[in-house]
Design a protein around this nucleic acid. Structure first.
Lengths: 205, 205, 205, 205
DNA sequence: TATGAATGAGATTTCATTCAT
DNA sequence: AATGAATGAAATCTCATTCAT
């Protein structure tokens, strides 16, 4: 991580920035490696010193961007005093993620088109070079434990929440269809609370 | 529909079949028009007599496949005697769709990668040449009316149900991750029931 | 000529009209036979019943159009009373041709791009199906004879006049460069008179 | 000019040579980029490193060839002792150009089919990469000034001379029709002298 | 490390022409 | 005579990847 000297890190960063900019504006299919290096003011061959191909740089980008997104959302919770229940915390994080995506629609497009559960696990569960060692998954499990409550299948719960959010928000944010984001939010957060409740194992079970 | 003579209909059908087969096995990006016509045993130029380009044939395919899927699910309900409540009916249809996709994983891949809410509306709401005039949307609204109950935003309800199903089932069916389909189903159907309940306007509202 | 029944003549005419319209608006290279038949509301195969290929129909068009152009110019001279000298007559005809082309720039483009001296001879010297038996060349020679004067090489004279006119007028009419048509005309007509004078054999020669 | 390293200059030159050879033998329309690179022993993609498309290479060729043609003609005049009048000088240059074209009929075909007044201005008036900074137009104006005489519209004079030469010589050189080149020359040069005379402003004007 | 010229396979698309109906 | 579906050769252009410098 700290091994690469500064100059090399800058080149790599520059390629990532260019690729993100082009992927989100023209789409991955219509972005060529030529485009990326031209945008980054480098020679074509240089690309291959840092990345294997277009899909390699795409995956590195998703890791970086998704990590930033979730880290920022999770960090915010420390500054909030009045959030006590698990439900409130999960909804708080969800809301933060959604608001970030609403403000950065390019990011939304990019993440939604490319973030699959498979990639998600790789990115958020285990730290990679891109994530800087941060693991959202660990944070989620800490939240559950902290609450002192028990859940049947925490992985499934997380999975369903994430899929529900990402799938419903995409069109709503980009097209305001079939409802606006403000109309969607209460239903969405209500449903998330229901999901948590449904998964809880009470003493009576 | 009856306008095109049989031979032309067969050619067109043959191209659709070939395209579907290749799209699902190699992916749309890695399927060329050359591949499609070769697979269909035709000359390259023939493709352009029937479709504008690769995206045109893709859209026609989605329309066809999605319509078949939903129609089959909705039809089944007529043969079931013991389903009375709206919740039961919706879950029955969802279950039918999921089972079809579980049995035809190629179809699942294709639909999931390409069925957006935008396309969905075009396909299921209004009849096109591909749908043969069938409208799933009309059927859904009939179901609601039939139940005698009132809902705040039926469109939003349908949107959320469809997005939840399609997003959660994709990885579960294809990768059995993070749970198996049998483990997912009760949670999913429970959540769908919660969603319907949540949207209902009772006299006390 | 009168052999073809009316229906067939109409089809042929329709193809010629469509081709001229497309050739002048999009250029010959960018006009396909498909375009022509589509514009003429016919089936593709029909084209080949009347013409061999694109160049065949082009040549027929040039013949028709060039003949009309020169015939109209030459006819006008009969209605003019005050034109006596050969020079005046030639300039009169030249002026008429130029004015026709100035008024119909599509025609100018088409003729200039396609009328070579080789084609010109075929078209204007000997009557073809397209020219309806009219020969401008005969008319020209009659003019010379009528004047009672003798010229070294009447063919060369005609050739030089036609080439000078067609080459200088093209850009001037279309681009008004390097001068306007009104500025060009006196120089052009003066030069034509010089040419005639230069070619005349006087008794002193 | 000295910027591109030798190897690149050679490749580019090789493409120009191949294109010229094919354009003049088969015509531009019937020459494909495939033909050009095959003839130049290169890969197809290489063409696009040097030229935008077929029309780009054509324009570059015209510029190069036309410049060479006029430069050579204008240079010759310095070695001639016995040429004093403006008329003699212009006729000398015209004769040189015509003789060059007579000796290189491929060049004649290519230039005549493609050299329009618009292109001519771009090529001969202002120096481009292809012309190496040489401007025939400047040389022409210097000739006029040198003569101490005044002309109404020097641009028009040049335009008419060039158009007359290029249009009359094409068929005569290639087909010996309607006269041979030797028969054409005296008429042509006589007419050029008339044109110059006609444009001169004498004190009596 | 970095460069960028060169490659050539391959994708898309057009279109003149044929021929069965 | 007229049609128009089918053909498949051919044209244009792109682009990932290599490699000599």
């Amino acid at each position: 991580m700290g091994k690469l000297d500064e100059k090399k890190r800058m080149k790599r960063e520059s390629l990532l920035v260019s690729a993100f900019s082009l992927f989100t504006s023209k789409g991955i299919n219509d972005t060529s490696i030529s485009d990326i290096v031209k945008h980054a003011n480098m020679a074509k061959g240089t690309f291959y010193l840092y990345f294997k191909d277009k899909f390699d740089i795409r995956d590195k980008l998703i890791a970086t961007k998704a990590t930033q997104l979730f880290r920022k959302a999770a960090e915010g919770i420390y500054y909030e005093k009045e959030i006590y229940t698990l439900e409130d915390k999960v909804v708080y994080i969800a809301d933060s993620v959604i608001n970030q995506l609403d403000e950065d629609k390019m990011l939304l497009k990019f993440i939604s088109k490319n973030l699959s559960w498979g990639v998600f696990r790789n990115v958020l569960v285990s730290g990679t070079e891109e994530t800087g060692g941060y693991s959202f998954y660990d944070g989620y499990n800490a939240l559950l434990k902290e609450s002192g409550r028990t859940f049947r299948n925490p992985d499934l719960l997380l999975y369903m929440i994430i899929e529900l959010i990402s799938s419903t928000c995409y069109h709503v944010i980009l097209q305001q269809e079939p409802v606006t984001l403000d109309e969607l939010k209460p239903e969405l957060y209500g449903t998330i609370r229901d999901m948590i409740h449904r998964q809880e194992i009470t003493q009576m079970d």
